[in-house]
Structure formats: structure tokens, C-alpha cells
């Protein structure tokens, strides 16, 4: 749609601008303020320049959290993306069962994140959980509260359970937009199942798939509630991801300076990925709706 130039449109945007400025700019200014100062209480602050940033960049703790975060995000994406595409290909196209499947698979997405943690906390326990009990009776060592591997597996499975549906829904929407004529042409050409997927379905849903991957990347990068409820970051620090680590530092120990420097670097990564996301979105918009 060709838009007209109208500077008065700013008045329509102004409420949003003011509101978001209030809830985003003021807090960020606070963070920037703290990140370059040190305090000994009593609201006495002294300038320390970039010391906190240097400390955080060289701190073992940040490196480890970042490493764990990167590993989790990689594992999750590697499992959820192919799995989600696979499920989307098997979704019924129309009729009652299509609606039914849509409603049922969307359900995990609507559960409060802390409840997702609670569900898996209960589900995985040896004494009262179905999963934990079943594994125990089969003689498999599994205890997410004490064993690092079990904790990781539980978190990955939990996230796959929680978020694969998002990828399914987006890919399904992409698949729905493919006209039947494409499939008929493929049939006439006697294309194999793989080539139908490779040359028709995949290109047609590449736009939405990219959106799905970026959304999953971002959301897994700020995961907090689910592991917080499930393992509390443990055993030891083995499931302390970036957000958990940051909240511990900021609200637990009240280390304002380092926490703020930490926040800013975290936010920078987010900004970078958002920019990629935005570029993808606008290029899709230009090509026309998917």
C-alpha cells in the first residue's frame, strides 16, 4: 500500500511513544547510570567509568552463564525446528480435525510460564510424577534435582513441550497459503515427497519459518520462569541461564554496578537480533504477505 506523507500522524503515535518511553527509556537510563558508578550505600555514588564492564567481560560467572545459555538455545532450536516442521506437515488441512488439532496444540503456549515449570516439576518427580515414577520403575537413574544431565534433559524436553507448537502453528500457516495447483503440478511431474518438500513447501514457508526461528531464539534467550521453578538454577549452577544469573545478581545480591553492566551487554545482544528480525520482517512485507 502506498502511504501518504503526513507529519501530523505523530499525534496518533504520541501516546505510544510517551508510554513506552516511560517504561523503557527511564529504566534504561537508570541502568546506564548505575553501570558507571559505585556505591557504598546511603545514596553516595562515585564515578568508576567502565570498570564494571571490564569486570563483567572478564568474569568467569558471566562466561559460564553465557555458555550455558548458548548451549541451551542451540539444542532447543536444533530439536524444535525440524520437529515443528515435521508436525506441521502432518497436520490435517481442513475440517473438524484441523480445528481440533489447532486448539489442542496451542494449549501449552497459553499456560503461565511458572505453571509450565510446576507441571514438569511434578511430572518428573520420582515419588509423585508420572515420568519420574515410570523411569524409576524401569531402573533408569533420573533425578533432575541432583543430577546435572537429568536436569538438562528435563529443561530441554520441557521447552520442546512448551514451544514446539509455536513453530508448528507458524509453519502450518505458511503451508496453508500454498495453492493446490502447485501440488497438482508436482504430481504431474511425478515429484518425490522430498522434492515436493524441498522445492515447493520449504521455499513457500521460508518467511514464516525465519520469523519462528528468530522468535524462538529471542524467547529462549530470556528464559527465566520455567527453569527457575523447575530447578532454581541448580544443581549447583548447572542450569543458571543469563536471566536467572542476572536476577540473582540484581535483586538477590543487589550488586547494582555489575548487574547494570551485565544488563546493558545482555540488551546489546537483544538489540542486534531484533535488528535482524526487523530486516527480515520488512523484507517479507515488501514481498507481500506470506
Amino acid at each position: 500500500m502506498n502511504k501518504t506523507v503526513n507529519q501530523k500522524a505523530w499525534f496518533l503515535v504520541l501516546p505510544v511513544f510517551l508510554l513506552v518511553a516511560f517504561s523503557a527509556v527511564i529504566p534504561l537510563m537508570t541502568v546506564i547510570n548505575y553501570s558507571v558508578q559505585d556505591t557504598f550505600g546511603n545514596n553516595v555514588f562515585s564515578w568508576v567509568g567502565l570498570d564494571w564492564f571490564e569486570e563483567i567481560i572478564h568474569s568467569q560467572r558471566m562466561h559460564e552463564s553465557l555458555g550455558r545459555q548458548a548451549m541451551l538455545t542451540t539444542i532447543i532450536l536444533l530439536i524444535e525446528v525440524p520437529f515443528g516442521i515435521f508436525i506441521a506437515l502432518n497436520m490435517p488441512k481442513k475440517g473438524f480435525w484441523a480445528s481440533f488439532c489447532l486448539v489442542v496444540i496451542a494449549l501449552p503456549l497459553l499456560i503461565p510460564w511458572n505453571v509450565v515449570g510446576t507441571i514438569w516439576q511434578i511430572f518428573g518427580r520420582k515419588d509423585i510424577g508420572l515420568l519420574g515414577h515410570t523411569l524409576a520403575s524401569m531402573g533408569i537413574e533420573y533425578n533432575y534435582a541432583q543430577d546435572v544431565l537429568s536436569a538438562w534433559i528435563t529443561i530441554v524436553v520441557m521447552d520442546v513441550w512448551h514451544w514446539t507448537s509455536l513453530i508448528v502453528l507458524l509453519c502450518y500457516a505458511g503451508l496453508q497459503s500454498i495453492p493446490d495447483a502447485y501440488y497438482q503440478a508436482a504430481k504431474i511431474d511425478q515429484a518425490s515427497r522430498w522434492s515436493v518438500f524441498r522445492y515447493i513447501e520449504l521455499p513457500k514457508m521460508s518467511g514464516v519459518l525465519l520469523i519462528a526461528i528468530l522468535l524462538r531464539f529471542m524467547d529462549s534467550f530470556m528464559i527465566y520462569s520455567e527453569p527457575f521453578v523447575l530447578t532454581g538454577g541448580g544443581p549447583g549452577n548447572s542450569t543458571t541461564f543469563l536471566s536467572i544469573d542476572l536476577v540473582n545478581m540484581a535483586l538477590g545480591q543487589f550488586d547494582l554496578g555489575p548487574a547494570s553492566a551485565y544488563s546493558l551487554m545482555y540488551f546489546l545482544v537483544v538489540l542486534l537480533v531484533s535488528w535482524v528480525f526487523f530486516t527480515v520482517m520488512t523484507s517479507i512485507d515488501k514481498k507481500g504477505a506470506v
Binding site: 506523507v5 500522524a9 505523530w10 503515535v13 517504561s23 527465566y224 536471566s243 537483544v270 528480525f277
Partner: peptide, 29 residues
Amino acid sequence: SRYTFMGDKHLFFWLLTNRMAPPAVFALP
């Protein structure tokens, strides 16, 4: 959706960054 105006693209992008921002960063402030 209807108009172009000064800084519209920047504003649109800036809004997106707030959707993507980790709540953990904002908890303390």
C-alpha cells in the same frame, strides 16, 4: 499503516526491541 512520517521506521523498530527485551534487564529498574 496509513502514513509515513519523520522517524516512523526507527520508531517501529524501537517498539520491536521492547517486545524482545528480556524482563530480567528491567526487573531492577
